[in-house]
Design a protein around this nucleic acid. Sequence first.
DNA 1: ACCCCGGATTCCATCCAATGGAAACACCGC
DNA 2: GCGGTGTTTCCATTGGATGGAATCCGGGGT
Lengths: 251, 251
Amino acid sequence: MARRGYDERSVAEKLFAIADAFERGDELTLSEIAARARLPMSTAHRLVGEWVEWGGLVRADDGTYRVGIKLWRLSVRQPSSRRLRTAAKPYLEDLLESTGEHVHLAVRDGLGVVYLEWLSGADAVHTITDVGSRLPLHATGVGQALLAFAPPGVFEDVIAAGPRKYLPGTIVEEDALRARMAEVRRSGIATSVEAMTEGAFSVAAPVRDASGEVVAAVSIIAHVERLREPQFALGVRIAGRGISAALGWRG
Amino acid sequence: MARRGYDERSVAEKLFAIADAFERGDELTLSEIAARARLPMSTAHRLVGEWVEWGGLVRADDGTYRVGIKLWRLSVRQPSSRRLRTAAKPYLEDLLESTGEHVHLAVRDGLGVVYLEWLSGADAVHTITDVGSRLPLHATGVGQALLAFAPPGVFEDVIAAGPRKYLPGTIVEEDALRARMAEVRRSGIATSVEAMTEGAFSVAAPVRDASGEVVAAVSIIAHVERLREPQFALGVRIAGRGISAALGWRG
DNA sequence: ACCCCGGATTCCATCCAATGGAAACACCGC
DNA sequence: GCGGTGTTTCCATTGGATGGAATCCGGGGT
């Protein structure tokens, strides 16, 4: 038990709280970092210095800090996501060219979905999220595509976490979600209408690796008035199959 | 002073030593991490657990660890490198399509150069490096292009660090490097012949931001027998200017 | 030139979070 | 059942981490 009024977090937790302060990609002063990480100035000063010494953070001449290239270097070499993105690239570009909308590649990360690629046509519907974003599984097309084929227990964990109803179109009831998952598994396509963004729908298809496991999802987001146009579902289905084949899947 | 036989590193240094164990993108067991980070098993076990709890590392079912998506998410949102890569993308693809060789975008990182993009033609000369790699400034085309326009003191730091002679073609003598830097500034092109890879040469041009500061370099690596073909230097020069213009430079 | 303010940096008495060797556990192959 | 290897847990010990206070620094206003 820490002394009264003192921070109970471990050194590691404090270091990671500092890293979390940069989640939005901002450049921050030391005071801003301390505030976001909820640390005293002198502790923040010392621990930020450790990040800088390692290269995880970089200090600009004006005294602000930003994330250093070290973190990118550590992450970009991960073989599995590199193979995935390399395989997906031509398909995503085809979808972008043929639809002019938003085109994504996303993976499941615990109970969330993280966007690895985010390509946008010039006139695509406005969204508030971007590459690297993490959104809930239940409220996105890619999320539903990933949740439908997730390992046992993930669906239950989502339900237990109490999924949030962002818009009237967000499905949060367990029975409705189960039915939706079954429909996704049956059809191979997840369609999500105004679940996260008003005026937008998304359509997504799973991407499988050589073992048949669903490792990603590819999707298009478009204006809801284009909901009935069949080329979106067709496009993500073909893209999903093509990327899967490139990863060694044979189904 | 640490007790005899005990590790003098701070907790932060130990945590970062664990992260450094993953620099090559491998999946590692706990014992392998402990060995690379030079930590006792119980210390490694505890600190690796802290990385996993935060999401910086992920443990697979077979007990091996790899870098988690958290680090990628923190790094991918950095505005300046995203603008740079978005601006560079069409030019890099043009260079790839027109030359069929290796095409890179790199930035300076201290006394090294880090490759942000690495596109390779199917028949490109064999190299041992890849995206995310960090190589010395003096021994690469992009490195020389970046060093020539680096802030005061960087060149002196490179000399003080004792640049390594990888091949007979690697320039390491101070006078020769100074002359080379002057030539690069005059011509706007850095050519490096068999400085890092036998049988290969690279040609690079700087990329400037809106303020005119050199923030990156674009290059092509090709077989040394194609050294005299003029389209490589022309290509990187045009690409460098185009990317700079896209970033707001007017020169 | 001076003063004030806000942010950053340094100091250091205090003490408990971090330590790692040892023991126990788990798994696998023979 | 046993041995080997890797992982996990325990806990007596202690010095690295702590953060409030003091100091420093830079910029802006008068």
